[in-house]
Design a protein around this nucleic acid. Sequence first.
DNA 1: TACATACGTCTCTTGTAAGAGACAATTTCT
DNA 2: AGAAATTGTCTCTTACAAGAGACGTATGTA
Lengths: 262, 262
Amino acid sequence: MQDGSALAVSADEKTSGSREKGLNRVLEILEFLHTTQRAIGIGDLAKGVNAPRSTTYTLVRSLVDAGLLETAGDGNRVYFGKKLYLYGMDYVRGNDLLRRGRQEVDNLSRETGETSELCMLQSGRYTIVHSSPGTRPFRISSATGLQIPLPWTASGRLLLAGFEQARIEDMVSEDDLILPDGRRLLLSDFIADIEKAEATGYCVTSGLVDAYTKCLAAPVLSGPGKVEATMCLVVPIDTSEERTSSLIGLLRDRAARLSIAG
Amino acid sequence: MQDGSALAVSADEKTSGSREKGLNRVLEILEFLHTTQRAIGIGDLAKGVNAPRSTTYTLVRSLVDAGLLETAGDGNRVYFGKKLYLYGMDYVRGNDLLRRGRQEVDNLSRETGETSELCMLQSGRYTIVHSSPGTRPFRISSATGLQIPLPWTASGRLLLAGFEQARIEDMVSEDDLILPDGRRLLLSDFIADIEKAEATGYCVTSGLVDAYTKCLAAPVLSGPGKVEATMCLVVPIDTSEERTSSLIGLLRDRAARLSIAG
DNA sequence: TACATACGTCTCTTGTAAGAGACAATTTCT
DNA sequence: AGAAATTGTCTCTTACAAGAGACGTATGTA
């Protein structure tokens, strides 16, 4: 337990040590489960969200009773519950864009054979909202709901179109600018990319998240200039110039079809 | 709507006026949005869950910040947010039964042309977890996640198999026994139905929820005798005897395929 | 123009839930 | 076997969130 208290990495910019509101703890618990993507023991959960054990037990019990969490398998592990699934479906039902977007993404990946994704900004973070795997032998797997730094992606450049520089700086941390391969992106370059993406109406990045793929993205608009989401294709980096531009055309067409702007 | 746990300590009934825990308020808010199935103003929301306005504003703000809720359209209405969708997808991903069940239900309704559903017990209530519409002209629409009294359904009879009588009585209120057409079911009859359903391995009800349909259901087992879910078909009440029994055969087959018991 | 309702924000008080920690019962090591 | 760590439950204290309500500002409607 000694090593537990030594939190050199403490991302707690907040008042660490002070009492926390139950609701906040719950939100952290949910977020934690979302990142772990698996059932977890309550003790570990308490450690994971850095909350007192007794509190965690109480909160988890409430959540399990409410059906937001479920005790998994052996009995002392918990994970997301049916209620959350139901609420999620409610969200989909009430959200035309998402419903149609999922459809289009599925179509697109079936037609092209490439991995296709629908991406959105989720509380200042890039989020893969839905993805449909391509038919290629090597899988490019990126879990739905995964949080990836905005500067690593083509979609990120489109999603930030129209934001003021200050807002962008808020959303992008120093770490976000360091690419997976260690290279460092200049914030000014990134902002230039954003403006270029906005002007051209699409964006292509090569070898950013990994060395073998390039990412094609097109914006889905919910109003003039307002980027609500992006559709993107993840293709092998050696995809020919012709095929790439043909895919971009298709992608832009489909994204436009989703747009409400008109 | 309340937790209504069986082991009520003091059970002050409504306890209107007493202070409520923030988390509980939140749970009520989510449940309320689930029943309304639409974005709602914060004032109305406060009324709906019978919470003070100021409290509701605070809680909603937290939830919106966290992404569990989103402000819809005009700006002063809220509904479920993307986060809940993502958590819901996590649930699906971690839940083989649900994932495969959705698939089977979709197949089944496509093959038969009838409305097909996957149902589960959700904190003591019957819940349609996934449904796929049939191809019939008149739509038999029952929203996913809808809460219907157990005695009104064929699935309800299967889902309660193996429960002690006392538990069943807990789960079924007096009101639940009154059918939509006003008829009143006897609890003893209902319990007899349950036992029969368990013995025969399927259940058929005619004209219970409405006068035009009958409901065929088969259990999905997660262990010997443990009913984890049901698959059901909603067909016109005048479906021929032969077709009905052929559908039941198909249904039982598919449900068995989902079962882990073996 | 007044009159009534709804909205969003703020302040202050007090009831109460978050948290520390003790406990017995497992489980997992040596 | 004994030691060490984990689990689930319980009690008690006090820091703090829930709630009442006032306030200024939209709206709508007589």
